[in-house]
Each structure stands twice: as structure tokens, then as C-alpha cells.
Design a protein around this nucleic acid. Structure first.
Lengths: 188, 188
DNA sequence: GTCTATAGTCCGATAGAC
DNA sequence: GTCTATCGGACTATAGAC
């Protein structure tokens, strides 16, 4: 038991999300977030590189989860099947924290700066997936294409999941989108 | 002939790119850009929303070009064929300004902030393509999937084009990537 | 065109854990 | 002693308000 309250990062994350929801992202200062968490501005920046990053604290863990799912896919799996295993893992994580994810997504959708950050996190995920696929012996070109196209499909499925709350399972939506893309003919 | 030198925007764009190349994006201040263009800081911000945006001045025109290409595709074209027409138009534009595009891409690749901005411009392009496809009577789901997956393919092709200068035509690379993705089985 | 708030960095100080 | 986490103040540049 130390001098400080435990779980500094978590408190900052929660305070930030609350304030972003209450007053909007732009009308919230870092000083206010820190104050609500019982800390100072300076401490916020020790934990998060900038005001946006605090909303994406879980993205590293999500990426690791996806990479592990690709690595754990059976040898017989095609590149796209391996990628789908990753998205299933991601979908399960989102499904679990449904309300929190939706609240967070509302904030992100309302601010271009946050959408930018979200997109680069997705690009990081895609790069990590491509790496994982190369680790399975997939060629560089196919690894990149599978990761990018898979991420694109996931993006569409996720958006549908957000827009239609409680209608369908996210991983089911991913499969439907993938089938639809196959039907449209990626190579035609 | 007015009181001011002509082509204010263009001069700011050129000064910015030069300085970003010479000293790096972060080590360049807006005041320096304005000074080199013979203008004031204030004028810079009247033309560009922020320090990043000056590198993406052409993105609106590129998006329009792509949208027009989709609209101009023959009625018999599949959604993906229409999207490919858009990417062909984009490829021609990039091919034409090869050196400038590479210089600009070097700067972007070196700075996360700029990659973020690039990604949102690509997302805007994808959204515009989806809109154009819906305008052709394509369903919302297929329009989004085609636009997102097509953009994903273009991203990979563009990266290869940047990494291997002068080897192959960009539009040819797009086709090769699309074929490779079709081969890997988007829907399997 | 001037003024100002805020983001974000840098330096150092401090206080506990080990 | 070392390591790590918080805090304080001064500072620059961006970006928006007036």
C-alpha cells in the first residue's frame, strides 16, 4: 500500500471517458481529467502521450489477442481463415463490453481527431496481423492483402454492429460481410 | 495584378513541403512556412485548418476524380470494376507527379501525425466511393464493402509502388493485388 | 492582426518501494 | 543505495477567439 491510490491509469481512463461524454472531447481539458482522477496534468502525460490516446488504452491488448489467435490457428487454415480467427477473438472482446464500447464509439464518431487516432490503431492492428501471417509462412504480398482486406471487412461489420444494437452477433456479422465480399468478387 | 503575389495557397504548400523535407515536420513551425512564402502565420491558418492539412491540399480533387470515374463506368460494370476505374484514375494522377508524390510520402511515413491524417483522407475517399456506388443502385452493404476492400487493395499497391520506384505501373499493381486477393479467397 | 487558452515538453524535486 | 511514480513550474507552438 503506497502513498497513492491504486490504478492510476484506469482512473484517468474512466475520468476521461466520463468527461468526454458529459461535455464533449474538445471542451474537456487535460487538467480537468487529472483533477477528477485526483492527479495532476503532468501525471496524465506520463501515462498517455496525448489527450486522444487515453481512449485507446486497450488497443495494445486487442492487437496482442488478435496476433495470438492467428498464431494459434491450425496449420491447415488459409490466410483469410487465420485472420478471421483473429477477428472472432476481437469480436468476443467487444461483445463482452458492449455498452462501454458503444459509449466510447459515440465519442470517437463525433470528433475527427479521434477518428484519425482510431484509424491508425486499426492500421497498426493490420500491420501486426500481416506480421503474424508472415510468421506462418505466408508471402509478404498475400499477408498484407489479407490483413488489409480483413480489417476492411471488420470495419464494415463493426459499423453495422454499432448502428444496429443488439440485433446480431459481431462475429456473425463479420462472416456475413466476408461472404458478401466474396460474392461480389474481389478479383473480378 | 493585385496587391499580393498570386497563388498564395500554392506558395504555402510548396514552402511547407520544402521545409518538412529539409528540417522535418516537427522541427518546422507554421511561422517559418509563412515567412518562406512571404506571408504571415495568420494567413496560413486561413487557408489550412492545421499544420498537417497543407500536405493534403490535393485530396479533394483526387476524391472528386475517383467519384467521377465511378459515375462514368459503364452500366454493365460490377461494383468492383467501377471501383477499379476510380483507382485507375487515381493511379494516373500519382504516376504523373511521381517525384513529388514520393517526396511527400517520405515526409508522411516519418511522422505518425501525418499518417493519421493520410488515413482519414483515405477513409473519406472510401466513403465517397461507397456513396458513388450507392448512386449506381448498389446496396449499402455491397457499396461499403467494395469501397473499403478496394481502398485496402489500393493501399497495398500504392505501398509497393512507393517501395519499388520505377519498376511497375501503379494501375498494373492495383490489378495484380486485386487478382491476388481474389485468389486467396475473400469469402473463404 | 493581436491576444489568449491549451496541448505538450523539459527540467528538476520528492517520496515511497525494494 | 537504485528504481519508479508523482508533482511543480517554466516554456514553446498550435489553434481559435476577439
Amino acid at each position: 500500500m503506497g502513498r497513492w491510490e491504486p490504478n492510476t491509469r484506469g482512473r484517468l481512463e474512466q475520468a476521461a471517458l466520463e468527461l468526454y461524454v458529459e461535455r464533449g472531447f474538445e471542451r474537456t481539458t487535460v487538467a480537468e481529467i487529472a483533477k477528477r482522477a485526483g492527479l495532476t496534468e503532468r501525471t496524465f502525460f506520463r501515462h498517455f502521450a496525448d489527450k486522444r490516446e487515453v481512449l485507446f488504452a486497450g488497443s495494445g491488448a486487442l492487437r496482442d489477442l488478435c496476433v495470438e489467435a492467428v498464431a494459434a490457428a491450425p496449420d491447415s487454415a488459409t490466410p483469410m481463415e487465420s485472420a478471421v480467427a483473429a477477428f472472432d477473438a476481437a469480436a468476443a472482446m467487444f461483445q463482452e463490453r458492449g455498452d462501454l464500447v458503444r459509449q466510447r464509439q459515440n465519442v470517437i464518431a463525433a470528433h475527427a481527431e479521434l477518428r484519425e487516432r482510431e484509424l491508425i490503431k486499426l492500421a497498426d492492428l493490420s500491420a501486426a496481423l500481416a506480421d503474424a501471417l508472415r510468421g506462418r509462412g505466408v508471402s509478404d504480398l498475400i499477408a498484407r492483402l489479407t490483413a488489409e482486406a480483413g480489417t476492411a471487412v471488420f470495419k464494415v461489420a463493426f459499423q453495422r454492429w454499432i448502428d444496429n444494437p443488439g440485433q446480431r452477433d459481431l462475429s456473425q456479422l463479420v462472416r456475413e460481410c466476408l461472404d458478401a465480399l466474396g460474392g461480389v468478387g474481389a478479383g473480378r
